[in-house]
Amino acid sequence: MSRSIDIKLRVNGEDVGATVPARLNLVDFLREELCLTGSHVGCEHGVCGACTLTVDGDTVRGCLMLATQANGKEVTTIEGLADSGQSTALQAAFTKRNALQCGFCTPGMLASALGYVNAGGAADRDAIRQHISGNYCRCTGYQSIVDAICDVIKETRT
């Protein structure tokens, strides 16, 4: 058994306080304790990107961060991105391009794509492919995802 630690953080704009086992990772905390099941777990060892979310504006892997490390931080999950409208343009482009099939990689893919777009990334297919290479998708051929991200960049920068 591991010991428990008190944490306070903001998740999707709401204050959250909890007592969590020290070993609990952030994505399990969000999914199990807060029922924010939009973040997914594909590998739990930092490779697949399904757990990608935003902490203090940075794109991070929720399986590689402990819940206690999020103490005092601002966490945004796919639910938060959707409700706040931050991902509206990407959602529309992903839908139009059919950039998802089973949708399991999608929340993480969207978070990574948003990180790229917000950082001023170019509508350059190779650069986008490089950027999303930490997010595995087993269903699409990635092409529609690249197309969707390009669309959003072109739309918002014209």
């Binding site: 999914r31 029922c35 924010l36 099941t37 939009g38 973040s39 997914h40 777990v41 999950t77 796919i78 639910e79 959707a82 991902s87 990407l90 959602q91 992903f94 839908t95 139009k96 059919n98 998802l100 089973c102 949708g103 399991f104 999608t106 929340p107 969207l110």
Partner: peptide, 21 residues
């Protein structure tokens, strides 16, 4: 035609087995 259920999955509202409690 775009898929109607894409919106749900894009908003983190999917219901996969591990999401059920």
């Amino acid at each position: 035609e775009p898929r109607a259920d894409a919106a749900r999955l894009l908003q983190g509202r999917g219901r996969f087995v591990d999401d059920e409690k």
